[in-house]
């Protein structure tokens, strides 16, 4: 049985999840890869995070989508996860900003998640499938500066099927 969740995620929402559970996630998801993580953490340390970034209970998605622009509106064509391992160096800082869920592929260090957040795995390469759960592009940050893959895309998702791969007890499907 899949657990239905909606962002922002509360501490209780994530604490009851166990590695191996399937979640259907709805709400807002922020894409962020290497460069975006660096920038978010830098701006947050100066108290200068831009308005649309509300990281309290937020879900960050390690993803660089394929995007089509039509009549001035962006449409997500394909948007599977990228390898999360590269973002390990930012993990503790990004979770300290209130992020409670990270979506990616390949896993991360389990320890930083303990007590406060979960890691959701989505199938790598399943970009066309992920795009079916993405209903709307709400905003995009730093598109000119970073380009399409590294920009922060603020997405509205509905019932995105995810696998809890690291839970708040630090239990990880990658370390079995």
């Amino acid at each position: 049985m899949a657990v239905k969740l909606r962002t922002p995620l509360s501490r209780q929402d994530v604490r009851r999840l166990r590695a191996g559970d399937v979640v259907l996630l709805s709400g807002t998801v922020y894409t962020a890869r290497d460069e975006a993580h660096g920038k978010i953490i830098d701006l947050a340390s100066k108290g200068e995070l831009p308005q649309p970034l509300d990281l309290n209970g937020a879900v960050v998605y390690h993803c660089g989508p394929v995007v089509r622009e039509r009549n001035g509106r962006y449409e997500i064509v394909s948007a599977g996860p990228t390898t999360s391992w590269r973002m390990n160096r930012y993990l503790d800082s990004i979770l300290s900003l209130g992020v409670r869920g990270v979506i990616g592929k390949g896993g991360m260090e389990a320890e930083p998640f303990r007590g406060r957040a979960v890691y959701f795995a989505f199938t790598g390469g399943a970009g066309a499938l992920a795009a079916e759960s993405i209903k709307e592009v709400k905003d995009v940050l730093w598109l000119d500066e970073f380009g399409v893959p590294e920009a922060v895309w603020i997405l509205e998702v509905r019932d995105m099927p995810l696998l809890v791969a690291i839970d708040t007890e630090g239990s990880s499907l990658y370390e079995r």
Partner: peptide, 13 residues
């Protein structure tokens, strides 16, 4: 889905 909609199967083209 990629075949049916003629879109990239994976976003990393």
């Amino acid at each position: 889905i990629g075949r049916r909609r003629h879109v990239p199967v994976c976003q990393d083209t």
